[in-house]
């Protein structure tokens, strides 16, 4: 959850994992190691296995806290049980619908915008002639992916807020056109769109690189045939490239939907922080969990929300994985 771009991260690996591997070496690989060799290999795997046990499976076991009235002195397993009280507390607080709706709405918006921008950019980058020029363009639009959320937050303040709510680049531009100034950091309605623009800035180039890679694997003959039929470049992009990119797009959508229940904590928290005015539109499950952990310190309830998120998220991811398997079988043309 700390990886803001996990949605997109999952993309290429699963695209790849779902492709059949070259069969040439598959049978030969079955060569059995000696028992001493097996021991060596087990030793090799050991550090990774320990890490998974402690940092991936340990916290899963620690989720029992969600059913407990946790206090530090008794520890995770010593604290008394309190059944479903933690869940009842969360669902009766009135925050639940808001943060669930925000999480899904914002993530859907981010997904649609970054995929749309990535697809368009890839189609357009594909028009750029010259290896060097295209590489150069690609490098520039890919760079924001490596900018940390905190830096994005600083940029955004300079663009939107300036100093103490007055000034800022956008307001100065509005000023030129005689439009009223907006105090952006007190306008919750604008923030889903501002965050979407940030996401496009951050992920547009990254997504386009994935699409562009898929474009390069389209055989040249298809375009030659289209050219003989008199298709313009625009027509080729629309009627040849785009349909051939649909499987890639489909997989990215499915994976994105699978991650829809996990908010992009880092970016949203770095930008919004503890600015309560913006919570109505920007508070997602992850930021809510983090804030209640910090301010209230109620481990039980917070863990309950986390468990709720994990379970619903698990359902989404599993469905996404199953759908992706099916989709991918049908689209094995690529």
């Amino acid at each position: 959850m700390q990886r803001g771009t996990a949605v997109a991260d999952a993309g290429p690996a699963d695209v790849m994992a779902s492709r059949p591997a070259p069969h040439a070496t598959r049978t030969a690989r079955r060569r059995k190691p000696t028992s001493r060799g097996t021991l060596g290999l087990l030793l090799l795997a050991l550090p990774g296995v320990i890490w998974f046990l402690v940092f991936a499976y340990g916290p899963m076991a620690g989720l029992v806290v969600a059913f407990k009235d946790f206090n530090v002195s008794d520890g995770i397993f010593g604290s008394p049980w309190n059944g479903l009280q933690n869940f009842a507390y969360f669902f009766s607080s009135g925050d639940a619908p808001r943060i669930v709706i925000n999480t899904i709405f914002l993530n859907a918006l981010f997904l649609a915008a970054s995929l749309g921008a990535g697809l368009l950019l890839a189609l357009m980058l594909n028009e750029i002639k010259g290896h060097f020029t295209r590489r150069f363009g690609q490098s520039i639009i890919f760079f924001p992916y490596f900018v940390s959320p905190i830096v994005i937050s600083i940029i955004l303040q300079a663009v939107l807020a300036g100093v103490g709510g007055r000034g800022g680049m956008v307001n100065n531009v509005l000023n030129v056109f005689d439009l009223p100034q907006v105090n952006w950091y007190t306008e919750p309605g604008a923030w889903p769109w501002i965050l979407t623009i940030v996401k496009v800035w951050q992920l547009g180039g990254y997504t386009s690189v994935i699409f562009l890679a898929a474009i390069t694997s389209i055989p040249e003959e298809v375009y030659e045939a289209a050219a003989i039929d008199g298709a313009s470049r625009a027509r080729m992009a629309r009627s040849v490239t785009t349909p051939l990119l649909l499987p890639t797009l489909g997989i990215l959508i499915v994976l994105g939907v699978g991650r829809i229940f996990f908010g992009d904590f880092a970016t949203i928290y770095a930008i919004v922080g503890d600015n309560g005015t913006l919570f109505p539109t920007t508070d997602v499950i992850d930021t809510y969990v983090f804030r209640s952990l910090r301010t209230v310190g109620d481990f039980g309830t917070t863990a309950a929300i986390g468990l709720f998120q994990s379970v619903v998220g698990f359902v989404f991811v599993s469905v996404a994985v199953l759908v992706q398997r099916r989709v991918d079988k049908e689209s094995s043309i690529l």
Partner: peptide
């Protein structure tokens, strides 16, 4: 762990 996580609190 790609499908299910323990979350922040644990």
């Amino acid at each position: 762990p790609m499908l299910f996580t323990g979350g922040l609190v644990p």
